[in-house]
Design a protein around this nucleic acid. Sequence first.
DNA 1: TTTGACCTTCCAGTCTCTAGAAGGTTTATA
DNA 2: TATAAACCTTCTAGAGACTGGAAGGTCAAA
Lengths: 129, 129
Amino acid sequence: MNIGQASELSGIPSKTIRYYESIGLLPAPARKDSGYRDYSTPEIETMRFIQRARNLGFAIKDVNELLDLWNDTHRTSAQVKALTKRHIDEIESKINELESMRNTLVTLSDKCHGDDRPDCPILEDLASL
Amino acid sequence: MNIGQASELSGIPSKTIRYYESIGLLPAPARKDSGYRDYSTPEIETMRFIQRARNLGFAIKDVNELLDLWNDTHRTSAQVKALTKRHIDEIESKINELESMRNTLVTLSDKCHGDDRPDCPILEDLASL
DNA sequence: TTTGACCTTCCAGTCTCTAGAAGGTTTATA
DNA sequence: TATAAACCTTCTAGAGACTGGAAGGTCAAA
């Protein structure tokens, strides 16, 4: 099948499929006489795997590792769990950082009149007058 | 003062100060005979303003707007508050996205033995068998 | 046959820096 | 005074993960 249909079935835009191929995340598919890429079902499965992993926030490098583990019958579930734990830890530290920002911003915002007057605690805090 | 000291006082790396200048976030400072950049106190204040805004997650474009508002005596606090609210909304949607990822990952991870066996609900979910 | 929807490659841009190269200047020490 | 160390300069390229656009080839239907 053409890249357009592969895109629809996998949920990955055609451009991104080509990009994934260019960085080696996806193997180069067969080509038709026209030069068009020609995908088959197992390749679509791989794309869906990639798409789900990306939706869970795994970096491309991690997705690559997950694909390797997926294809390795000698993998241990400990390996997968360790990779996932690392990722969870990263997500949680990002959440904490964002929550801290949000708390500061909400506190400042609540103190700001938000009317026609120029005085504003948000700017004052940034300038730390 | 030299860029090194400006960097220490503002908390912004020298390289980043030059980068901010190159994109017009910071005005080009005076130069000494040697060609070295020569900063004075008000410029450090601007840098600190920028650094605090960046630490609160404002994008460069937003920092630029905040600087303009800071320097505009005819600004209204409503303008600042609106910009801040936009930013808070963005942060909250990122937090929600990350929390949703984390919840899924934790659920899957909890079901994974994490031992020497190869079977793993995390991979199974990604492959959606 | 021609139109429109596909497909191809390649280059550039996004965002916010950061590393490194190659070289000039200043300061401190031997 | 010589020289080494610590600064500073500009420039280019790379990170991560795409996305847009240009210029052109292919295919299916009217």
